[in-house]
Computed example of a mutant assay.
Amino acid sequence: MTPAARTQAAIELLDAIIAAAREGGAAADTLIARYFASRRYAGSKDRRAIRELVYTAVRQCGEPPSSGRGAMLLVAQSDPELASRFDGSQHGPAAIEPGEPVAERGVVPAWIARELERSGIQSASWPALVERAPLDVRARRDVDARELLSAFPDAQPIAHLERGWRLPAGSDVASLAGAVEVQDAGSQAVSLAAQVGPGMTVIDLCAGAGGKTLALGDTMEDRGRIVACDVDRGRLSRLAPRAERANLTIVESRLLDPGREAQRLGDLQAGADLVFVDAPCSGTGTWRRNPEARWRLTPERLSRFVAMQAHVLEVAAPLVKPGGAIVYVVCSLLDAEGKDQVDNFLSAHAGWTAADPTLPIGAAHGRGVRLSPAQDQSDGFFVARLVAPC
């Protein structure tokens, strides 16, 4: 493909991504994969260049742009070589017209900016929210990570994580599945708040595909019991093969019925040493990986997440044995989903207290700890450890 044709392809993809964000359609990565699946003529260099153009444009537009062309014209304003590709050639974009609409440069939509400021996230740190993330992995406790990753000369241990390693973005670690798990440094760090050990009974209440379940099981040295739960059958189904590859035998999956979770968890009432709640959230801390997600978030959607989080905490509380704990985690920087949720829970549950999560990174925030991309070079999280009365 010519450089002009690559630019036009990026514009077409941006149009699809903008429409999907507006209408609740597929994520950008999915749309990009579908696009190239139907265009076999695009070689690996073409795909890489087009993808880079797409994400560069997405990261530079705070508000959802009106068109893919307008977004690409914004990038072209500071890239003369890119601007020259608007040449009207057969497969390239039309020439730039005087006064043509150009997307507005920014980091976040205006309403999210207000929420971030209310949550104590200052504007100077916003650009870090959409920078490209490195590739972090967690090595299994019984493997020699240094030897295993010797084929990756740029791999570096993450100082504050015993089994964490950082690789350049795009590194292919598929061949190491089971021995290492792709997991952001922040995600690895918040898992430490669980303070689990061998022999414990642990419930991972919002397990998804099980990234944190695997980290907990590894720390427990595959001794005890982990009940991994979720309402999403598709995501939960991916956990069993991952656990098998990781040589974990203590993990069992349990599919829950939304709104009727307690009925499926009756046998676990007051029986868990720990309930790990990685709650559904806005994902404002993960925009480095999914920058178009900030175009999908609306005040109404945020309100639904807040209600869902409060509900999940209510489901979790009766499962904890006296003196046991809930570890509440959201990959969000917004107080509505983190600090405020914990304050509301403690106000409504007499005898429960907040304990120090004792994380190796992050800063105290309210009755928990917050991690941020700007300060911690990780995804953004809020984590709190809530201890049941004895």
Rank of each mutant, 00 (worst) to 15 (best):
P3S: 11
A4F: 05
I11D: 00
E12W: 12
E12A: 11
E12I: 02
D15V: 09
D15F: 06
G24I: 06
G25Y: 01
A27Q: 12
T30W: 12
L31W: 01
R34W: 10
S44H: 13
R48I: 10
R48S: 15
R51I: 12
R51H: 15
L53H: 08
T56Q: 11
G62I: 02
S67Q: 05
G68W: 01
R69G: 01
M72C: 13
Q77T: 11
D79C: 10
D79M: 05
P80H: 08
L82E: 07
G92P: 09
I96P: 04
I96E: 01
P101Y: 08
E104Y: 07
R105I: 14
A110H: 12
A113K: 09
A113G: 15
E117Q: 15
S119A: 03
S123I: 12
S125E: 14
P127A: 11
E131H: 15
E131F: 03
R132W: 08
P134V: 06
L135A: 10
R140K: 10
D144I: 04
D144A: 05
A145G: 03
E147P: 00
L149Y: 00
A155F: 05
H160G: 11
L161F: 08
E162C: 11
L167F: 01
L167G: 00
A169G: 14
G170W: 10
D172V: 11
A174T: 15
A177H: 09
G178W: 00
Q183M: 10
Q188C: 08
M200T: 07
L205D: 04
A209S: 09
T213D: 04
A215S: 07
L216M: 12
G217R: 02
D218C: 06
T219M: 14
D222A: 04
I226R: 01
A228L: 06
R238L: 09
P241F: 03
T249Y: 00
V251M: 05
E252L: 06
S253M: 06
G259C: 02
G259R: 10
R260M: 13
E261L: 04
Q269A: 13
A270P: 02
D273A: 12
L274E: 04
V275I: 10
V275K: 02
V277D: 01
C281P: 04
G283A: 08
G285T: 12
E292R: 09
L297H: 03
P299S: 03
R301F: 06
R304Q: 15
R304E: 15
M308S: 15
M308K: 14
E314H: 12
V315K: 08
V315H: 03
V315W: 06
L319A: 00
L319F: 00
S332Y: 00
A336E: 15
A336R: 14
G338M: 03
K339W: 05
D343Y: 14
D343K: 14
N344P: 09
H349W: 12
A350C: 09
W352V: 05
A354N: 07
A355W: 02
T358I: 12
T358V: 14
L359Y: 04
L359I: 03
P360K: 05
G362Q: 04
R367I: 11
V369G: 07
V369F: 06
L371I: 06
P373S: 10
A374V: 02
Q375L: 11
F381S: 09
F381N: 06
F381H: 12
V383Y: 01
A388K: 08
C390I: 14
